[in-house]
Amino acid sequence: MTATATQRRSSEEQASGTSAWRRRVTSEPAARVTFYITAFLIWVGLAAMFVRVPGPAAVTASLVKEFSRGEVFSNFADTFYRFAVGVFLSVVVGLAIGVIMGMSGLARAFFESPVLVGLSIPAIIWAFLTVMWFGFGDTSPIVTTFLTAVPFVIINVAQGVQGVSRDLRDMSSSYGVPLGRRVKDLILPAVAGYVLAGVRFAVIIGWNGVLLAEWFGGSGGAGFRARYWYDANQFAGFAAWVILFVIVIVVLDQLLFERAARRAFRWRDAGH
């Protein structure tokens, strides 16, 4: 019988055995870029096949025109103000209720149903309701953003708090650590991942909310401007705004949340 030996390759050997271009092509950034290229090619293909799908050239031309008219920055400033206030409120309220829900069975029993109801109501319904309640202006988009986002923050934070290590809670009790310090040093860092996930959801879903509220009841803002082009039957102008919506969310996610996650979990990467 012939003996066969299985040799394990070290990371250095693996690195030296793979050419630089191959490592780059099979990297995670390359996968992301591949998606964007594929999506772009599909868009070009669809535009070539259907008259009512504006191609990249028409959309870019509309975008340039919107920029030159000064519509982009002023409308986005309105939208961002409403969006930021709504998300900020949803994070503050969501954190407070989520922590209380996670720590108290009584609070959980009280808040569980309204949170589930909140989760089940889509942003478009809130948009309709708030326009009916508050009319046109800043209030409708702010409240829509808040009501759409807050249940996601609450449910994530509450789950995180419930999952805080029993051992660490017992340690804190046995040393008589005051509640405020426990929340700051034990509970909030322990639920940081859940909070980040909740806020991430809140931002994405809140962005939907604010745009929808502006679409139906805005007197300005990015959603309102998209509706303007839609009503004018100008699909290139409409698509230009959709592209901007997507870019905003992608940039926010990459700049804000990727960095926040890296900072919040730097202790986890500190190995031996």
């Binding site: 051992d167 660490l168 017992d170 340690m171 804190s172 040393y175 650590v177 310090r181 040093d185 034990l186 860092p189 322990a190 940081a192 202790w267 986890r268």
Partner: peptide, 20 residues
């Protein structure tokens, strides 16, 4: 002193000591 150290993994050694 517990069977396991029960330290807050997201706080430095000194901050763990100060926590209690």
């Amino acid at each position: 002193v517990f069977q396991d150290p029960r330290l807050l993994p997201w706080r430095s050694v000194r901050k763990n000591m100060l926590y209690v």
